[in-house]
Amino acid sequence: MSVVALVPAAGRGERLGAGVPKALVSVRGEPLLVHAVRGLLAAGCVHSVVVAAPVSDVDTMTRVLAFAGSHARVVPGGSSRTQSVRLALGAAPPDTTVVLVHDAARAFTPAELVKAVVARVDGGADAVIPVLPVADTIKRVDAAGRVAATPDRADLRVVQTPQGFRAEVLRRAYDAYPDATTDDAGLVERLGVPVDTIPGHPYAMKITTPFDLAVAEAILR
Rank of each mutant, 00 (worst) to 15 (best):
L6A: 07
P8Y: 06
A9W: 08
G11Y: 04
G13F: 04
E14K: 12
R15I: 06
G17C: 06
G17T: 01
V20L: 03
P21C: 08
K22N: 12
L24E: 08
S26K: 14
S26M: 11
S26Q: 12
L32T: 06
L32I: 05
V34A: 00
A36G: 02
V37P: 07
V37Q: 01
L41W: 04
A42Q: 07
A42H: 02
A43F: 04
A43C: 09
G44P: 08
V46G: 02
V46H: 01
A52Y: 04
V55L: 13
D59T: 13
D59L: 15
T60Y: 05
M61R: 07
R63T: 05
V64D: 00
V64T: 02
L65K: 02
F67W: 04
G69A: 05
S70W: 02
S70R: 11
R81N: 12
Q83S: 14
R86C: 12
A88Q: 12
L89C: 14
G90S: 11
A92R: 14
A92E: 13
P94R: 15
D95T: 15
T96I: 13
T97G: 15
T97S: 14
T97C: 13
T97Q: 15
V99H: 10
V99K: 11
L100F: 10
V101G: 00
V101K: 00
H102A: 10
A104S: 12
T109S: 00
A111L: 00
L113N: 04
V114W: 01
V114M: 05
A116P: 05
V118N: 04
A119Y: 10
V121G: 01
G123N: 00
G123K: 04
G124W: 02
A125P: 04
A127D: 03
V131M: 08
D136N: 10
T137V: 12
T137D: 10
I138Y: 05
K139F: 14
R140A: 07
V141W: 02
A144E: 14
A148N: 01
D152S: 07
D152M: 05
R157T: 00
V159Q: 01
Q160R: 06
Q163W: 13
R166S: 05
A173G: 09
Y174M: 14
D175E: 15
A180T: 11
T181G: 08
G186W: 03
R190K: 11
V195N: 07
I198F: 09
P199R: 00
H201R: 02
P202L: 05
A204N: 04
K206C: 13
K206F: 10
K206M: 13
T208Q: 12
D212H: 15
